[in-house]
Write a protein that binds this DNA or RNA. Structure first.
Lengths: 170, 170
DNA sequence: CTTGGAAAGTCAACAAGGCTGACATAAACT
DNA sequence: AGTTTATGTCAGCCTTGTTGACTTTCCAAG
């Protein structure tokens, strides 16, 4: 099924797709169930250490962009500073994150993972990558390309900007 | 890129994939950002009416399987009966869901959407389908097939069972 | 017919993690 | 000097998850 003309080019605009509500509904349910699996392994690890998903997100993006500022993180995570601050405070108090006053602009705080923070990040991301790796292997390389392409289209434009910045940038 | 041997067959086992941690990390971030977009439109609608995602999930799966029991819903949603019950109670009180005592087994409650419930469900799912449809169109049919394939592999086995039951069943 | 247990509902208490609003401080900008 | 920006913090609220305890209903097996 679904072998009309191919054309897997990235920039391609509309193609002749007949998408029934039922097909779309299956995609929606797939997203729902898959996201549960996607977060299941990290959730277990976090739970053991008394953290939640919010801590994972902070740790992930600090690891991804060491020295990032609070404001930048707020843009990526899309939460209020109060929410983020509560999470960051516990991470700093627990010695997983270091917050350094900016040298250029001393209002800013630059965030870094400590050794312990890096250890947790490795643990979490290894678990999550393990599942993704297994899924990718089962599905095959073409499926993976499609997977990423569709996900990118589902994003809100400003989040896609963040995503692409992370993708390309350093 | 990624054009070794193709072989997009569904049951295929391992293929020669070289997956760097960086490629996997991008997939993980794609899931994170995409899920935000995925829920953004329904969240807006729910917010206007004073409901949350938990209500959406209940309404969705009741709509999907009218007459389903509370226990079945618990298995699908993976929450405690107390959590689900709180949500169901407000939906019943607000006249969006009808809870009928089972005729065969009168301990069970069978759940149905009322006219108002159907109206909300249509509103929510039309918004969500709209985004999925647009994403599918942009990404193309092959990408969509890959998208669904990878998502299915990310699921936990028991959730995959639920997913497939919903996919095929009635 | 009695009793064990499953299904469902309810109450209470708690925690995580969102939110808003108000306010403080320091630093940078104009 | 005055304004804006970046951050932090306090207080309070909401949703949605949790556990634990208890009741009611009612099927089904002894």
């Amino acid at each position: 099924m679904a072998d009309h003309m191919g054309g897997s080019g990235t920039g391609g605009g509309e193609q002749l797709l007949f998408l029934t509500d039922d097909q779309l509904r299956r995609g929606i349910e797939a997203m729902f169930f898959a996201y549960r699996g996607f977060t299941a392994d990290p959730d277990r690890i976090l739970n053991e250490r008394g953290y939640g998903r919010a801590h994972h997100r902070a740790v992930h993006f600090i690891s991804r962009s060491p020295g990032t500022t609070v404001n930048n993180l707020l843009g990526i995570l899309g939460v209020t500073k109060q929410s983020l601050n509560r999470v960051l405070r516990t991470l700093v108090d627990d010695g997983l994150v270091e917050s350094r006053v900016g040298s250029h602009d001393r209002r800013e705080r630059h965030l870094f993972l400590t050794e312990d923070g890096l250890e947790l990040e490795r643990h979490l991301s290894e678990a999550q990558r393990g599942r993704m790796r297994a899924a990718y292997r089962e599905a095959g390389p073409e499926a993976v390309a499609g997977f990423r392409l569709v996900l990118e289209q589902i994003m809100d434009p400003d989040l896609r900007r963040h995503f692409k910045t992370l993708k390309e940038g350093q």
